[in-house]
Amino acid sequence: MKIAIASGKGGTGKTTLSTNLASLIAESTAVVLTDLDVEEPNSGLFLDGKLIHHEDKFKMIPEWNKTNCTLCGKCQEVCNFNAVMKLGEMILVFPELCHGCYACSELCPENSLPMIPKKMGELKHFKLPNLDFIESKLIIGEEQAVPLIGQTIKYIDDRFTETEFKIFDSPPGTSCPVIEATKDADLILLVTEPTPFGLHDLQLAVETMKELKKAYGVIINRFGIGDTKIEQYCVENNIPIIAKIPNSRKIAELYSAGKLLYNELPEVKIELEKVIKFIQKYQEEIV
């Protein structure tokens, strides 16, 4: 079962929930946690695993070969991302804008734009007791998160066919990287905070998940600050509120020290157990 932890608003506690939930599940069941926030992965700060595998990840981009090029301009015509451009007697390629769709390369009548691999990031696989942790990270200057997220999910799909729980720490927002990170998930946990920004971005995230036809529920983090509008919104829209993680200075202190929360804070453990129950219940329903 694939569980994606997403949010809309950044900084609401996706990583806190991901790392704590995965670690607590791992006390009884094997689990894979994957950090798909490839622009700034940080789950690894909270998990002290042993690096067992490390690989470079590549995307394919076109490279101009001027020998047979007739400067017909077909390549720039078919590029939806302005990544290939005819300028005077030259064809310019902007690798960071390229989505690796092959259109220019395949449709070039002279085969003047062969695709070549370009390193976009790195994948690391760490091992902890009962817990595999995988993170991918884009290299500096790389703009496209989607191809790396897709390849990272493939790494999981290829290796963990038997593992019962696969947790994906997703990027924030509601744009392409989030879609890529959540589109294969069975269940989405949306983490939010009880503030106007939290509510606004939660609504966007909910709309996105409806569009994707996903099952989802809400976890309110830093519960106790702000107002009660998140709860009203969830009740009015029949969205399950799975858990409420309290706002507390102690949590912030543990977090800033890179520590997990539930061993020291029973009030957090209770909430995580509610999340696990929700997941199990959902699992029983879909079987």
């Binding site: 939806n80 991302f81 302005n82 990544a83 451009m85 310019l92 902007f94 804008l97």
Partner: peptide, 8 residues
């Protein structure tokens, strides 16, 4: 244009 406004 969502992408590549500058070069265009």
């Amino acid at each position: 244009e969502a992408h590549g406004a500058g070069p265009k």
